[in-house]
Amino acid sequence: MAQKASNTATGTPGDFPPFNQRHLLSIADLQQHEIIDLLDRAERMVPVSRQERKIHATLTGKTQINLFFEPSTRTQGSFEIAGKRLGALVMNMSVKSSSVSKGETLVDTATTLNAMRPDVIVVRHAAAGAVELLSQKVGCAVINAGDGAHEHPTQALLDALTIRRNKGRISGLTVAICGDIGNSRVVRSNLLLLGALNVRTRVIAPRNLLPAGIEHLATEVFTDMREGLKDVDVVMMLRLQHERANGRMIPSVREYYHFYGLDAEKLAFARPNAIVMHPGPMNRGVEIDPAIADGNRSVITEQVEMGVAVRMAVLDALLPAGDKA
């Protein structure tokens, strides 16, 4: 292989014990030590992307399929770069319609792809549980890149890594997540992950964006953003889908921004050194003031960078060590 010269590594830099999970479907499947293990592995992957020759070819000869039933430029791109920097052969498949009535079913798609003998399939689907269903029908590792409003585990991992790098720790912090809680997979994965690491979690949203039973998943629930941001270490903003602010869920963008948009005045309630995060893509002026999004407390672009490191670490961890080149 052309990459052979630089391909001397045989695992994550730093040598980690085998990772005992076949898939990454949900943060709920991970023990605390496994979460920390993945974060440590990701930390070691960060320098790979910062060096001139961005290659750490532990997956040479492996095939990675990115199967996206919902378009997502960033997540798909991040997984693609992660796979390529590990030397894997990466194929992108975008399936326009996940409609049941037309064309083949998800299970058919899984069976077809499985016959091509991939080593890992990265899946994004609009329906909760779809990735798990697909994982039951294939013989390779499956990574959940977002399933409906259920989970987005690599997002939670990259958020945690970003927090750890900025705060030096995760445990004991107070993290507020603000926005469309009900429809967000990012929230569910983050609440599970942060909860497992003893973080005090807060969710902030108008009542009609709060799902039933959320008080059992977050430490505290707020409908007033100023109260909710008081003394927090981390502010995570969520994207508000424009179509929700059409008078059916939310009266208007301006009303939403007035009460739930992150601006300097509201951010002042957080700790002075609090960081601002957003999973992207952002709606500047809807949920966040552009000055904050691009300001010095924002770690939003660092999240994108950590995304590549986390996905490299996950890909590397899931493919069995004995199987490697």
Binding site: G129, E151, P211, A212, G213, I214
Partner: peptide, 13 residues
């Protein structure tokens, strides 16, 4: 059914 369990599963209640 609407409730905590649906919320955990990310399903509409």
């Amino acid at each position: 059914n609407e409730g905590l369990f649906a919320t955990i599963l990310g399903l509409k209640g």
